[in-house]
Design a protein around this nucleic acid. Structure first.
Lengths: 208, 208
DNA sequence: TATAAATTTGATCAAATAGTTAAACTATAA
DNA sequence: TTATAGTTTAACTATTTGATCAAATTTATA
């Protein structure tokens, strides 16, 4: 990860991430994080002073993983369709590797919106000025030849993320309602769903 | 609401809902709920014994509001396109009236999946056997003339809900990133987005 | 090696908090 | 009016938990 961190700091951050992501800020216990890291509780305070500061560290790094690397997906010289396919595939992969991240981040975002706002104030240069324009650029042609009501690329981005994210967020519900709790069936469905989403989007936006 | 409940019980439930939805199970404080209800803390325990039991009551009723009344939207004799429009409009309205409900429910669903599973075990008759088949029925024609890869109505349902839900879940983020925190602009966008979603879906599924 | 600095631990504190209890109060029916 | 059941309150208890601190241990440095 980060070589400026000591081994102990890294152990703590990994453990804290696991516990915070699963239980949230108020549900997490410093003792549980210490146990998970295999160290004494006092060490947490030695390295991070307060629970709040430790949480912040975890939250900041979680945000970095959560926000799609739109820019990198959009900067290739492939067609818009291919870019959409790459986005859906890559972002699905990220989320399936961290299935509890979305709920954690969105929960904290609603618990304390200031937190995310200050994050963007700091990273405004990298998030907004780079990622979003890259996406706009990629959809410029689309926006120009779009429907008469005026096609807004932001809607397309929200559509994509929403379709990718929702079944992962609501995973336990979907699995139960649609598949009677059968995990294997659910996984197959989710794998097939990736191409479905791409086709669904492309089908809609390429309609004359 | 429920006339079998005394006025005090109702006050408690309203207050508990407000606090639990905003802060989650572990973040909520019994004292805060009591204050919000304008009563003594002991009364909470008198009526609901434990925090867990009070939370359950709130969670159960929240689930009822959260899950879209698919069946009622699907049972009219209008076209599939009109059904989609009604679904998008009505469900958007429900969510905008309860903007913190989704994050609350999805958070709890991930915190304790057993909770939602037991809910479905109880309500399986009304949720699954009524709502889902109604939706399947409405999309049967679609499934038959669907794309060669085989159109699964479950995907359509997930697509709709995902697109409607995501901007509400991530509201503070979207507002900040896309609209520099300007609330009015965001609201206008969200209102226009409703018809965009309907058109986006219909455009995709009616493509020959 | 000796000294200092950094790291780690166990014991403990103080605040927060869910839950209990007994007493006071209120409405209702005999 | 009195007895009874239901309701509400204030004070209290027990536990959890974030945080602190001094002592012990390890590591780096002279």
């Amino acid at each position: 990860m980060d070589s400026t961190l000591t081994e102990t700091e890294q152990k703590i951050l990994n453990a804290a991430k696991k516990v915070f992501v699963l239980k949230g800020m108020s549900g997490a216990r410093m003792q549980e994080i210490a146990n998970e890291a295999g160290i004494n509780k006092s060490l947490l305070h030695y390295y991070f002073r307060t629970k709040e500061k430790l949480f912040d560290s975890v939250f900041q790094s979680a945000l970095g993983e959560f926000f799609p690397k739109i820019r990198s997906y959009m900067l290739s010289d492939s067609s818009l369709e291919d870019k959409i396919k790459v986005f859906v595939t890559e972002y699905s992969k990220v989320l399936q590797e961290n299935p509890f991240l979305p709920s954690f981040i969105l929960g904290e975002v609603n618990r304390n919106p200031e937190h995310i706002i200050s994050y963007f104030k700091q990273h405004v240069g990298s998030i907004k000025d780079k990622n979003i324009p890259a996406f706009h650029q990629a959809t410029k042609e689309l926006a120009e030849k779009g429907s008469s009501s005026g096609f807004d690329p932001r809607n397309l981005l929200l559509n994509m993320i929403g379709m990718i994210l929702f079944p992962i967020l609501a995973r336990p519900v979907i699995k139960e309602v649609f598949f009677d709790g059968n995990n294997a069936e659910f996984e197959v469905f989710m794998k097939n769903r990736e191409s479905h989403i791409s086709e669904f989007i492309i089908n809609s936006i390429t309609k004359s």
